[in-house]
Nucleic acid binder design. Structure first.
Lengths: 222, 222
DNA sequence: TAGATTGTTAATCGATTAACAATC
DNA sequence: TAGATTGTTAATCGATTAACAATC
């Protein structure tokens, strides 16, 4: 039996980490699950359940969790000290917006290069706080990944027509994790059981809001 | 008791709709839940359960669902004929990327205007297939919403420091649904129980992939 | 008729919430 | 000690999967 980690747990762990970062408390301060509830909106029971599930048992009764220790545990789970290198396939507006996404830096997730097929993008750079991330031609992708065998993760932001083809290529080049931001549901090639693929549905939360606003008549009152 | 609609159901309904659009089948073709499974990856049991839950009972035994009727039902749920008008607060890269997001058009979700505080953005336009969407100064937002009282939904893509302040303003101006794309968890003002707020966590699926790739050692085999 | 597929109910699975003994 | 807070188990809730009678 695989121990499963759900997207929701990881997202909450991110919340705890980011909230803690923002509060900028002294290392030896003790924070309780109730306080974490106040700043993250996640119930204190859920907080403790998450910690229990992930084996974080550093709490002191009557005090809470020492900020220094808690940081260490959260960083471990989120691989923040190791960091992660990612490449972005598709240098359109979405690809570039993701490349400069602020929270990726906080999480030590580093976009190393973008790839596109459009000649007028190739050769340019995306500027991120002093750093310049190059846009390469998609034809050089295989070569690039041979030179950087430790880059394991790709974000896919290409037009949907070429999405599945590029996913298959990425897998054949040795990529192990792909986040699909295209509107098409992509499937993992049968040959690649060890590759993680997540379909990220960008509009989903908006669609829910639209439903709720335009179907209020149908929602019964409590 | 409110009948709750989960984000997941709405997302799957979107999948069915988009898949059907792409296939471009004749109106009188009958598609089965098994076929829907093949093209969307959602199990046929889940498909029928979703239809049952939402009151779609147009199936014919041994045949399936008539494409024309199914389209009609899905459109109704997704408010596609009515459409939805939205505004975008924050005209940075993410705000502009969302404004031109292709699937919003498919869903008849129309971005009508963007708002920003930066003088060098104000007065410009975001170009979307022949349409030009204006970027206005944030100070004109109240006035703008008075002129467009039927615009009920806002996407929030501003820097996190000003996020909660702007959310409160949006609510006070009469906005009824807000999708928060900023990295901060925002809370609904106590006064506004009827306002829908969804926090959209952009990186979450990437974070899950990072976890799985860097913690493979910890995941037990089946 | 025999086979296929729906609509619906029941069973299972997973995630959240509640409860509480332990103890600092 | 009394009060507070953890770690952990149990109860609840919700979502998915499985099953199957109805029937075209």
């Amino acid at each position: 039996m695989k121990k499963k980690i759900s997207l929701r747990v990881i997202r909450r762990i991110s919340f705890y980490y980011e909230a803690l970062l923002k509060l900028n408390l002294p290392d030896d301060y003790y924070i309780s699950s109730t306080q974490l509830e106040e700043i993250t909106g996640v119930s204190c029971n859920q907080v403790r359940q998450d910690f229990f599930y992930l084996g974080i048992s550093i709490g002191k009764q009557k005090k809470g969790y020492q900020v220094k220790k808690l940081f260490k545990e959260l960083k471990k789970i989120l691989s923040i000290d190791t960091g992660a290198d990612v490449i972005v396939i598709g240098a359109g507006r979405l690809g570039r917006a993701l490349s400069e996404y602020k929270l990726f830096k906080v999480r030590n997730i580093n976009v190393r290069a973008l790839f596109d097929i459009k000649e007028d993008l190739v050769g340019h750079f995306v500027h991120i706080k002093g750093e310049e991330i190059p846009i390469y031609h998609i034809d050089t992708l295989e070569e690039y990944l041979k030179e950087h065998p430790n880059y394991k993760i790709a974000l896919l932001t290409v037009p949907e027509q070429s999405a599945q083809m590029l996913l298959d290529k990425l897998v054949s080049y040795g990529i192990k994790g792909i986040v699909n931001f295209t509107p098409r549901i992509l499937k993992r090639p049968d040959s690649a059981a060890d590759v993680q693929i997540v379909n990220d549905c960008i509009g989903a939360s908006l669609y829910k809001i639209v439903y709720q606003i335009y179907h209020q008549d149908k929602i019964l009152q409590d």
